[in-house]
Amino acid sequence: MELNCSSPKTIPVVSTFTGKGSDSSSTRKPISLWPGMYHSPVTNALWEARSKIFERLLDPPKDAPPQSELLTKSPSQSRTTIFYNFSSDYILREQYRDPWNEVRMGMLLEDLDALAGTISVKHCSDDDSTTRPLLLVTAAVDKIVLKKPISVDIDLKMVGSVIWVGRSSIEIQLDVIQSPKEESDVSHSVALAANFIFVARDSKTGKAAAVNRLSPETEREKFLFEEAEARSKLRKKKSG
């Protein structure tokens, strides 16, 4: 399956280090490529994307009122893709490579959380610069399922969208997709699946805040919504 990064909702990831050591013939990695010595390229890309998309919403008036009317959005409106061009970006490969020539899971988890945060902001935005934005916090990682090893030598795609909302909570599903050229079965290309739950708080009072509604459109979206609704009810039942 070809990974196409031409979609306007696709954010390409580029390496965050340039300079000596970028030559693939180098036998020693520069310090900037050592674990812990740099920020995730995805985090950088997402923050840049957020600043462009929500530039006029980031500095509301001090006395800005809360959102007065909830909107209804579809999952497709929040769907966002991250594209890792591992096959041609040597530095990016080295930033994500672990000792077993696979993707470093710690960085991938950081990227998943960053992407989920961006998606939640997209869904909760009312595109009104006169209202104060919500505070969105990761409440839980409902599940992470690693289905197969993730190579650092093959292009990678991370796709996510909102699949369910409650009054002040949001569930986001993320898929990490990697498929060799000879692999034609799309169902086998999902290497990792994760579900993140975010909660919304009023940025002034700190109290729970209502979020925009969700209207699933496709049969798949409706199925995911129903599954997430069942999980939410089960969590509430367990918590008493």
Rank of each mutant, 00 (worst) to 15 (best):
P30W: 05
A210Y: 04
K52N: 12
S161Y: 06
P65E: 04
S76F: 06
E182N: 15
I197H: 09
D153E: 12
S179M: 02
E183N: 11
D155A: 12
S88C: 11
T27Y: 08
M105L: 04
H123D: 09
I197M: 14
S76T: 08
C5D: 08
N85G: 14
G160A: 12
D23R: 11
G206T: 12
L108N: 07
K222Q: 09
E48F: 11
D113A: 12
K157T: 13
D111R: 03
K148Q: 15
S26C: 14
K237N: 06
E182P: 06
L224M: 13
K9I: 04
A209C: 00
G36H: 10
A139M: 02
A114W: 02
S215R: 09
R132C: 00
S215E: 13
T80Q: 01
K147W: 07
N195D: 01
V190Q: 07
V199M: 00
R56F: 07
I154T: 15
S26M: 14
D155M: 11
S26Q: 14
E171G: 02
W164N: 00
V186S: 14
S179F: 03
K236Q: 07
I11V: 15
E219R: 14
S88N: 15
R93E: 09
M105C: 00
V145C: 02
V152F: 05
N4Q: 13
T130M: 00
V14S: 15
V14K: 14
S74Y: 11
W34Y: 14
T27C: 06
I82Q: 05
S189M: 04
V152G: 05
P65M: 03
S161D: 11
C5Q: 01
R167Q: 07
R220Q: 10
S168H: 15
E227H: 10
H39S: 12
E182G: 04
G160P: 11
S24I: 07
H123C: 09
R50H: 07
P8E: 14
S87F: 09
N4D: 15
R213I: 00
V13F: 08
V13L: 14
V137A: 05
L46C: 08
L156K: 03
R231K: 02
V137Y: 06
W34R: 14
E2W: 10
T16Q: 05
A209E: 03
L108M: 15
L156G: 03
D202V: 01
V190A: 07
V121I: 10
A193T: 15
T80M: 06
R201E: 00
L57W: 09
S68L: 10
F83P: 01
D113H: 02
S88G: 07
M1F: 10
T16V: 10
L224F: 08
Q95D: 12
V190P: 10
V190C: 12
T118C: 03
N85I: 04
R28N: 11
V121A: 08
G160R: 13
